[in-house]
Simulated assay, not measured.
Amino acid sequence: MRKAFFTFIFLGFVFVTVSAQENQDSTQREGVFDQLFDFGDMVINVISGEKWAVIPALIYSPETSLGVGARAIRVFRPEKGNMSVLRPSTLPITLIYTLNNQTIFTTELDLWLNENKDFINSRIELSNFPFYFFGIGNDPLPKEEGELYGNRYVYFHANYLRRIGKGIYIGPRYEFRADDIYNRVEGGVLETSKVPGYDGQLLSGIGLNLNYDTRDNIFQPTKGWYNRLAWMGFTPVLGSNFTFNQYTLDFRKYFKTFGNQVLALQSWWSFTTGGPTFQHISLIGGSDRMRGFFEGRFRDNHAQVQQAEYRIPIYRNLGLVVFGHAGQVAREVGEFNMRRMRYGAGFGFRYKINKEGLNIRLDIAFGDQTAFYFGLNEVI
C-alpha cells in the first residue's frame, strides 16, 4: 500500500512537470494538439448518430479482466415538456464477453418526464458470470485463495419516483434476481460453510426510495446534492426463497472550486438484517465503490464507504481526476471503527463524448492491488 501511494505521488509529480513544460511550448504544439483532438471528435461524431451512439465496448477491471463487445447508448429528451428544463434521459444497451469467460448483457432506462417531476428507472441484466468468493467479514481469505464458482443469473429492477417538493422525490421499487450456481469447488469454502445462497437463490422484493436531488447536471454536476435513502424487503409472499431487509444511505455533495474544477464527495452506507444471501449482502470493492479492491472481497451484514474525487479539465474534452476512499464491512454496526478501515487512491482520465457531459473514463487505482478500470460515466 505504501509503495502504491508513493507511485501515485510520483505519477502526479510527473504529470505536473510535463504540463508545465507543455505550457512553455504551447505555442509550437497547439496546432498538433488541436489536430489530435479534432481527430478524436471526428471519431466520436462518426460513431454517434442523431439518436444512437454505437461504440465498440472495451472494459477492464480485476473482476472481469479484459472484456470486448458492443455498446449502444441513446441520450434523449422526450418530445413533450420544456426542453430547457427537462433532464436528459438515457438508454444504454451493452453486450460483453470477457477473458474470464463471462458473458454480460445489460440494458437500463433512465427516463425523466413532466419537467423532471417524474422519473422512471429500470434495468435488465442477463449474465453467465464465473466469480470469486473470499468468505464473509472484514478479514476474509487472502486474495490469492479466492474460490472460483460458476454462476448464471437474471436480474431486474424497476423504480418510479415522483417529485413532492424542491429536489425531493419518493416512490416504490421492485427487484427480482435468480441465480444458478452450476459449479463449485468440491469440499471448498462455499460447500463447507453453506452460507445462504451457496446453491443459488431466488429473490423478489419491494421497497421504497427517498431522494434529494439538486444537481445542476446529471452527468457532470458542479454543484448540488444527490442523497438517497432506500429500503428493500425480500419475502416469500412475493416469491423469494430468502427473507431479509436492506437499507441504503447514499449522500453526495458537489462543489465547484477553482475555475471549472469540481470536488465530489460521497458517504455510502448499507445495512442488512434477517437472512441475506452472500450474493446480496452488503459488500465493497469494484468500479463504483473502493476502486483498487476486488468487488465482493469484503462483504458482511453492514458496510460503509467514504469517497472523494477531484475533477480537473485539461484541454477541450479531456479531463483528469484524482480520488481517494476508505471503507469497511462489519457483522454488527458497533464493530465499525477507524482501525478496521481499508484505504485506496488513484487517478484517471475522462473524455467527453457528447454535449450533455457523458464521459469515457479510464481509472488507475491502488488498494490491496493495482487495478485498471475502463468504462462510461463518472463513479460519484
Results as ranks from 00 to 15, higher is better:
Gln261Pro: 10
Leu58Ala: 10
Lys256Glu: 07
Gly167Val: 00
Gly348Thr: 05
Tyr155Ser: 10
Ile55Ser: 11
Lys223Glu: 13
Ile284Met: 04
Glu63Leu: 12
Lys3Met: 14
Val54Thr: 09
Glu309Gln: 08
Met83Pro: 15
Asn101Ser: 13
Val329Phe: 06
Phe131Ile: 12
Ile168Tyr: 12
Asn241Asp: 15
Leu148His: 15
Tyr169Trp: 01
Lys166Val: 13
Ser270His: 11
Trp112Pro: 14
Ala70Thr: 03
Trp112Leu: 10
Thr107Leu: 05
Pro140Glu: 07
Lys194Pro: 13
Val43Leu: 07
Leu265Tyr: 14
Arg331Asp: 12
Arg311Cys: 00
Phe234Pro: 00
Leu249Pro: 15
Arg215Glu: 11
Phe8Arg: 06
Tyr149Ser: 06
Gly224Tyr: 04
Ile164Leu: 04
Arg340Met: 11
Gln369Glu: 13
Tyr343Ile: 04
Asp41Ala: 08
Asn317Tyr: 11
Gly324Asn: 07
Val18Glu: 12
Asn301Pro: 14
Leu148Ala: 14
Gly324Asp: 08
Phe6Ser: 12
Lys223Phe: 13
Phe76Leu: 03
Phe366His: 07
Glu125Asp: 09
Tyr169Asp: 03
Ile353Tyr: 00
Ile47Gln: 06
Ser84Leu: 10
Phe298Asp: 06
Glu50Thr: 10
Thr106Leu: 13
Lys3Tyr: 15
Arg173Ala: 09
Val43Trp: 02
Phe129Pro: 06
Ile104Leu: 04
Phe255Arg: 03
Ser122His: 12
Leu358Ala: 05
Tyr174Asn: 15
Phe156Lys: 11
Leu203Ala: 06
Phe33Ala: 15
Arg291Gln: 07
Asn337Ala: 02
Thr235Pro: 09
Met83Arg: 10
Asn45Lys: 13
Leu362Asn: 10
Asn260Cys: 07
Thr17Tyr: 13
Val14Thr: 08
Thr17Arg: 14
Gly367Asp: 03
Gln220Leu: 12
Arg173Tyr: 04
Arg2Leu: 14
Leu320Asp: 04
Leu113Val: 00
Pro140Gln: 06
Ile164Glu: 03
Ser240Val: 03
Tyr60Trp: 12
Phe323Ser: 01
Arg173Thr: 06
Leu91Asp: 02
Tyr155Val: 11
Tyr212Ser: 02
Leu203Arg: 04
Thr273Lys: 11
Glu108Tyr: 05
Thr98Met: 07
Pro313Lys: 04
Thr192Trp: 02
Arg173Ser: 10
Gly205Val: 02
Ser26Gln: 09
Arg339Glu: 07
Thr90Gly: 07
Glu378Cys: 08
Thr370Glu: 12
His280Thr: 11
Ile206Gly: 01
Phe374Met: 02
Ala303Trp: 03
Ala365Gln: 05
Lys80Ser: 11
Asn377Gln: 11
Asn260Val: 09
Pro56Leu: 03
Arg289Ser: 08
Leu202Val: 12
Tyr343Cys: 00
Pro130Ser: 08
Leu36Phe: 05
Val185Asn: 13
Val32Phe: 14
Ser204Leu: 01
Asp363Ala: 02
Phe271Lys: 01
Phe244Gln: 00
Gly188Pro: 04
Arg340Val: 06
Arg71Gln: 00
Thr272Asp: 03
Thr370Cys: 10
Tyr226Ile: 01
Leu210Ser: 05
Gln35Ile: 14
Gly197Asp: 07
Arg252Gly: 05
Ser89Trp: 02
Arg316Glu: 03
Ile120Met: 03
Arg87Thr: 08
Ala326Leu: 05
Lys352Pro: 13
Asn101Asp: 14
Trp268Asn: 12
